[in-house]
Each structure stands twice: as C-alpha cells, then as structure tokens.
Amino acid sequence: MGFLLGAGVGYVLGSKAGRARYDQIMRTYRRIADHPAVQGAAGIARAKIGEKVGEKVRRR
C-alpha cells in the first residue's frame, strides 16, 4: 500500500516537474523504502496489523 501511495505521489509530482524530477523522486523513495530501518518498522507494523485483524476474526 505504501509503495502505491509513494508511486502515485511521485508520478503526480514528477509529471508536473518533468521526467528528470520524477526519476529523482522515485530514486529517493526507493532508497528510503529499501532502508533496513524502514523495512524493520514496516515488518513490525504488518505484524501489529495482523494481530489486530486476527483478534477481530476470532471475535466473530
């Protein structure tokens, strides 16, 4: 989901600023998204969301 949001924002900003700016935005986004600290935080967030979803499913 975050990737799609980042790609969408990058596309809109890039299309207004030109292809070179779009490429720059996407390189920056990918560098941030691929950073180990960001990957770790995303994994923790996914686990927490999975726990919450699991709780709701069990309650039904």
Rank of each mutant, 00 (worst) to 15 (best):
M1Q: 13
M1E: 06
M1I: 08
G2F: 15
G2S: 04
G2H: 14
F3V: 02
L4I: 12
L4D: 15
L5R: 08
L5N: 08
L5T: 02
G6N: 09
G6T: 04
G6K: 06
A7M: 07
G8R: 08
V9E: 05
G10K: 10
G10V: 06
Y11F: 05
Y11W: 04
Y11M: 15
V12S: 05
V12R: 05
V12W: 03
V12P: 00
V12Q: 07
V12N: 09
V12Y: 02
L13P: 00
G14H: 03
G14D: 13
S15A: 15
S15Q: 09
S15D: 12
S15N: 14
K16A: 14
A17M: 13
G18T: 01
G18A: 11
G18F: 11
R19S: 15
A20W: 08
R21H: 12
R21L: 11
R21M: 11
R21Y: 15
Y22F: 13
Y22M: 12
Y22Q: 14
D23H: 12
D23C: 03
D23P: 00
D23L: 10
Q24C: 04
Q24N: 09
Q24I: 02
I25Q: 01
I25H: 00
R27E: 10
R27K: 03
R27Y: 03
R27S: 02
T28D: 10
T28M: 13
Y29K: 06
Y29R: 03
R30S: 14
R30V: 13
R31P: 00
R31M: 07
I32A: 08
I32G: 01
I32T: 00
A33F: 01
D34F: 12
D34A: 14
H35M: 15
H35G: 05
H35W: 10
H35P: 00
P36S: 14
A37W: 15
A37M: 14
A37P: 00
V38S: 13
V38K: 09
V38E: 05
Q39H: 02
Q39D: 05
Q39S: 12
G40V: 01
G40A: 15
G40R: 15
G40Y: 04
A42Y: 07
A42L: 05
A42W: 07
A42M: 04
G43V: 10
G43Q: 15
I44E: 11
R46S: 06
R46W: 05
R46A: 09
R46L: 13
A47D: 02
K48T: 12
K48P: 00
G50T: 06
G50A: 07
G50L: 07
G50I: 08
G50R: 05
E51H: 05
E51K: 08
E51I: 06
E51T: 02
K52F: 13
K52W: 08
V53A: 14
V53Q: 13
V53W: 08
G54E: 07
G54R: 03
G54Q: 02
E55F: 13
K56A: 13
K56N: 08
K56V: 15
V57E: 08
V57T: 00
V57Y: 04
V57R: 03
R58T: 01
R58I: 00
R58N: 11
R59D: 14
R59F: 04
R59Y: 04
R59N: 15
R59E: 13
R60N: 04
R60G: 05
R60I: 14
